[in-house]
Design a protein around this nucleic acid. Structure first.
Lengths: 220, 220
DNA sequence: TTTTGTGAACTAGTTCACAGCT
DNA sequence: AGCTGTGAACTAGTTCACAAAA
């Protein structure tokens, strides 16, 4: 009951910081479960990654009361709940846009294949690539077929791995194909409608932030 | 004078959020400069990506007074300042650890090569890979040679692109080789000493955050 | 006794709003 | 007139600290 009421406004109430941590907790629980640990406290969990125990409890409390006072959390139980919260109980299908170096590497990346994601298609505009497949066997389609294949395969997530100058155009096509979640690897700002979740991983920004650190640590 | 005083505690005072935005501003300024725009206001800059003009001014104000009241910022001028702030005036050398799909793709990624980064070496433990090179011509060395080559080439940044179970061991070797900045692509938490800057890009977390969004948007 | 779940206190980050310079 | 630089107000996120449950 309490759970159901909260559910309604979840994606507004829960910040991305929290959902990212949920993923991290889940990975930790997988490891604990594999090591046949039955129960874990927020304290123990917090020590693994340098986090605060209260934060873990607060993060989980958004979704229900999963813990047992005096005991902690049952590993298998919490793991199941987290998978459910993150929407991982169903296999989500992923398409990668851009069959260049990065796109091909991502399509065979084992981390993507784990935990319920299934990479079903690559798309490219280059006719020489269309019809080929990645080393791991993901077929490459022509980008013009995106709409058709996205609908047929029920593709839920698009990964953008095209050069910066093509990225916005590709995003527009992805949106037109009805895909509601995009993970973008191209540098620069992209526009997408409000009902489409666009998450960007900007490799250049990451490197430059390290460069900043190096430039300013030397001085102290 | 004011600038010099501030400099001392910069990396403590300035948050990562700010430095990440500086990268984004720089990219925008590059585009404006290429389009031969001479001057830009924080207002205009803010509209490009959906940001607040005051935030841009605050971000820049940490480092000095670069603007001209009534005019805005001189594009070339601010660009030069940002490059200097981010430590991009010198070319930083980068090594990639792990010559798998991801490592090879990253070593030829054009975004890395731009803006002052130079990928000089790949490292792997597999003897079949050692001696080969990436398509773009980055040579693959044995990981045992890391220390020697890092010193000789003055490698400043290490990129971790090895499987999760090898990641901590590789990080330890990178640290032992005296490298002070690490960009990690492997999933999971890694430990590094306080004087080493470790930045992680967790692809699984990114995808799971999209999954969360998809799972919870459907309900409204 | 142990550990959760959570209000209250605190800290960090963002936006407002305006004085002051050009 | 126009736009920066910045204190003050606000908002979001984290940590503390403790009552309540097992």
């Amino acid at each position: 009951m309490k759970l159901a009421i909260k559910r309604k406004q979840l994606s507004d109430q829960v910040s991305e910081l929290t959902t990212n941590r949920l993923s991290v907790y889940l990975r930790c629980l997988n490891a604990l479960d594999a090591a046949d640990v039955k129960t874990v406290s927020s304290q123990t969990l917090a020590q693994q990654f340098h986090l605060n125990a209260a934060q873990i409890r607060k993060d989980l409390a958004y979704f229900g009361e999963f813990g047992v006072r005096g005991v902690g959390y049952y590993v298998k139980d919490l793991k199941r709940h987290l998978r459910q919260i993150l929407g991982l109980e169903r296999r989500l299908k992923v398409a990668i846009l851009g069959a260049g170096n990065l796109g091909l590497a991502l399509s065979d990346y084992p981390g993507f294949r784990q935990e319920g994601f299934q990479i079903v298609a690559l798309f490219d505009a280059l006719s020489t690539k269309v019809g080929q497949q990645s080393r791991g066997g993901v077929p490459i389609f022509d980008i013009t077929e995106l709409r058709k294949i996205a609908a047929r395969e029920k593709i839920a997530i698009a990964v953008i791995a095209v050069p910066a100058d093509a990225a916005q155009h590709v995003v527009d096509q992805v949106v037109a194909a009805g895909i509601k979640a995009i993970l973008n690897f191209s540098p620069g700002t992209l526009r997408a409608p409000a009902d489409v979740k666009l998450k960007s991983v900007d490799l250049t920004v990451s490197l430059e932030s390290l460069s900043f650190y190096l430039a300013h640590e030397e001085e102290e």
